[in-house]
Amino acid sequence: MKNMLKDALILMAITLVAGAFLGLVHEITKKPITQQQEKAKTDAYAEVFKDADHFTVMEGFDTDQALSVLHENNFDNEKITEVMMAFDKNQQLLGYVISVDSTEGYSGDIVFSMGVSLNGTINGVSVLSISETAGLGMNAEELLAPQFAGKNVDQFSYTKDGATIESQIDAISGATITTKAVTEGVNAGLVYFRTLSTGGNEND
């Protein structure tokens, strides 16, 4: 009994010291980690909207409202997580950067951001987080994302037989589920973008 207590106390002491060191390292790395995450985000924004000079968070963005918009349009597996407004040097609104979280991925969520100009043209798609099968779905960034850039269509669809029209996306062979998730995600983003632009027009 006495031994047991002693053992427990020693273990507790070790745990306490370990906890203290963890806290220390956490404090030291907290700032760099937030900086890195911010940097990763702005990099992603810049990538999908090369013309833009700076980005600001869109005021009045509500995830629940965005979700209900998507539900109305039958997008049940996508979420809009963030909307940024892209401005040029003269404070002129160029378009939006919409971050979409698609839960339909083969293993876990696929989060990507897409830059959409005011006229509805997709400037670029950049994957923020993905954990698909290595060698197949993981290639979404290289194989899928570039296919969306520069296109102005209402809705994308994917095909396995080689894309013939503008709205078609070549599926990654062996990763159809990933392709579907990304394509649907982009479509969801477009749907939300249209509510933004019409809403914006009304305000004008």
Partner: peptide, 12 residues
């Protein structure tokens, strides 16, 4: 580290 609790101690 006491022998009896060495595994949890190592893991910590």
């Amino acid at each position: 580290i006491p022998d009896k609790v060495r595994i949890p101690a190592f893991i910590v």
